[in-house]
């Protein structure tokens, strides 16, 4: 998803920069005619329409994305494996420690002390899941594993002076 976000973002940045550059360039012409050659009233009248355009774009984005929020995508269907992940300063308790490719796995993530977060990285080092570990609460997230190998769990919520050492290095997904 990271690449998709980058491409979408850079597309809009490029469009914005083109418009910004055009505005800046136009001041050269403004210098020649003393800034008198533009209809201010017309620009003022167009402003609400610009607001409408922005509103429509945001509404479309909302309509596409809101239903993919993590709390909407989980369902109550039975999963193949339940993996309990408990954060505690400064490590993870994981049980069981291995699953198989093709299994639907439900992670039940919680914490014994402070906030932690389970950042799950695939064997290629890409983060594929990010689940908060909240003391006293459990968050359940599902994942369908398709790639065998050794996965790493890193803590992604700041939890104290050894936060950067809170790594679970050997979650196995076997073929």
């Amino acid at each position: 998803m990271g690449m998709g976000i980058a491409i979408g973002y850079l597309t809009f940045v490029a469009l914005g920069l083109i418009i910004a550059f055009a505005v800046l360039w136009s001041t050269r012409r403004g210098r020649r005619d003393g800034g008198q050659g533009v209809a201010i009233e017309k620009a003022e009248r167009a402003e609400p329409w610009w607001g409408v355009v922005v509103l429509v774009l945001l509404t479309v984005l909302l309509g596409i994305t809101i239903w993919q929020a993590p709390w909407f995508t989980e369902n109550d269907d039975p999963k193949d494996v339940q993996v309990k992940v408990t954060g505690v300063q400064f490590g993870f308790l994981v049980e069981p420690t291995a699953v198989r490719v093709g299994q639907d796995v439900e992670f039940n993530v919680t914490s014994k002390d402070v906030h932690h977060a389970m950042g799950l990285y695939n064997p290629r080092g890409q983060m594929i899941m990010n689940v908060e570990a909240i003391p006293g609460y459990t968050i359940s997230r599902s994942y369908h594993f398709t790639e065998p190998g050794t996965y790493i769990i890193r803590c992604l919520e700041f939890c104290g002076y050894k936060h950067h050492e809170m790594i679970y290095p050997v979650f196995q997904v076997t073929a």
Partner: peptide, 23 residues
């Protein structure tokens, strides 16, 4: 403001947080 504001829209979108939150 324009460049960072567009990032803000991404950050405001819940589905992208699996990739971006606390990175």
């Amino acid at each position: 403001w324009l460049i960072a504001g567009l990032q803000g829209i991404i950050n405001a979108t819940a589905v992208f947080q699996d990739t971006l939150h606390n990175t």
